[in-house]
Simulated assay, not measured.
Amino acid sequence: MSTTTELAPGANLAALRKAHGLSQASLARQANISLSLLSKIEVGNRTLTPAVAAALGEPLGLSMAEVLGAAAVRPDDEQRLSALRSAIRDYDLPGGQPVEEGRIAATLKAVAGHRDAAEVDRLLVILPRLLRDATTHAHDKNTAQSWMALAEVYSTVYWLAARHRWMDLAELAVTRQRWAVEQKSDPLGQAVAARDRAGAYLNGGDFEGGLTIVDRAIAAAEASLAGQQLAFAVGMLNLRGMTLAGRLTDKQEGKREAERHISSAVSAAEWFREDWNRHSMIFGPQNTTTHILATRLDLGRPREALAVAENLDAALEGLPPTRVAPSRMNLARAQLDVGDRDGALESLSAAWAAAPQLARIHPMAREVLRVLTSLHRRSNPELLRLSKLSGIAL
């Protein structure tokens, strides 16, 4: 695991630069970004975006996730995380006692609820035992359903690890996830696994590699699925594709790739009156809107992102906190980019209200808060409240 930090991303970047013995001018030159931008990021006048974090990570020899900073592990979670790693290592060592299928199904349902609610603390409690039980059950029954259940557990392990930027654990989880779905062919499960694998590329800052994974998975889904299942698989893969495209260094190429994935996702969303939630993946017209907002923002077009956000309340209605909170964070970032500090604070507060555990560890929530506290010149009770919740000092 990479070194963890309680610092917000921009402050973590400054600490990393100094630890590597680089001046701002040297790092900016090597990363091909302006010295002015780097200076503003470090002092807290501009947010450190994922794309810029990836560019700065290259000369530092670090991934995007490492620049943003891995979330610190709380002392009482160390043992649980160790147990989870042990269960992942034992992927081909099932337990001796059979596990009831009903117990696996019930626990998976509970886990899906905790994941949708962004209750990350509960997931870390449940996952080590569930992973061992699902491993035993899959080896014992050897059915497509039992292997897909195991793959779904690994998908949630990936989700949990990626949210914390524990990227060694995330990459191991997606490798095991793919292995599980390949034991008994499940085309939709393979599409989900490919989406998560592309997510590991995303968090590592290899956006081009992630796009290759997405395009290959779309072709495989088109050859093996049909109807709404095909639309769901292609749609969720395109959501990942537009996110990757929005973070490409070449913004012209990024815009072309993003528009291609946006167009395909919008077409796939026409198959659905409301969003589907399958294997903890969400796709439909509403989640497509939230991803378009994020992609416009990543492309450096905050006003276009704000135009998408005009109907954000309707888009978020009925979606789980895992989608509501990041969308409110993205809205806050867009508002901050156009100088609307009060609006940004209101949106950030809404993100915290929707999913406090996720906001506590999410790099953009922490970064927007850092910049807001730097820019505000007067006492603000809400900033003070969020500062205490996040551990980021005013």
Rank of each mutant, 00 (worst) to 15 (best):
W166I: 06
T135I: 02
R328F: 12
R377T: 15
V338F: 07
L160K: 00
L37N: 08
E382C: 00
M329E: 14
L319Q: 06
A305F: 05
I126T: 15
A354N: 02
E270K: 13
Y201A: 11
L312T: 04
L211Q: 12
F207K: 01
F207P: 02
G210P: 13
R328L: 14
G205E: 02
N12E: 04
L299E: 00
P320V: 10
A138P: 06
Y91N: 12
R178V: 10
V99M: 05
S267Q: 15
D90K: 13
R80C: 04
P321M: 08
E42G: 10
L384G: 00
M281L: 11
L306W: 01
E58A: 15
L383S: 00
E78A: 09
A87P: 15
N32W: 10
R366A: 00
D250S: 10
L56K: 03
H376F: 15
A65E: 03
P321E: 06
P98V: 05
L248K: 01
W179C: 08
P302V: 04
R328S: 13
A112I: 03
M167C: 06
I33D: 01
A31K: 00
N380V: 02
A220H: 09
L123E: 09
I282R: 09
G227E: 07
L293E: 08
N12K: 05
P326S: 09
L123N: 05
D90L: 14
G205V: 03
Q335M: 11
E253A: 12
D298H: 14
D313N: 15
T47G: 04
G318E: 05
I262K: 14
W179V: 07
G44N: 07
D196M: 12
A117E: 09
R115M: 09
H261E: 07
A83G: 12
A118H: 02
E208I: 11
V125D: 14
R385M: 02
V324H: 05
G69Y: 00
T212P: 00
T47L: 10
A219H: 12
L358V: 04
N142G: 14
R46E: 08
A161P: 07
V153T: 13
E101R: 13
A354C: 05
P285C: 14
L336C: 10
A268Q: 12
A200N: 11
T373N: 03
E317R: 09
R278K: 14
L127K: 05
A269Y: 02
L312C: 12
M236S: 09
R132K: 11
S155H: 13
E78I: 06
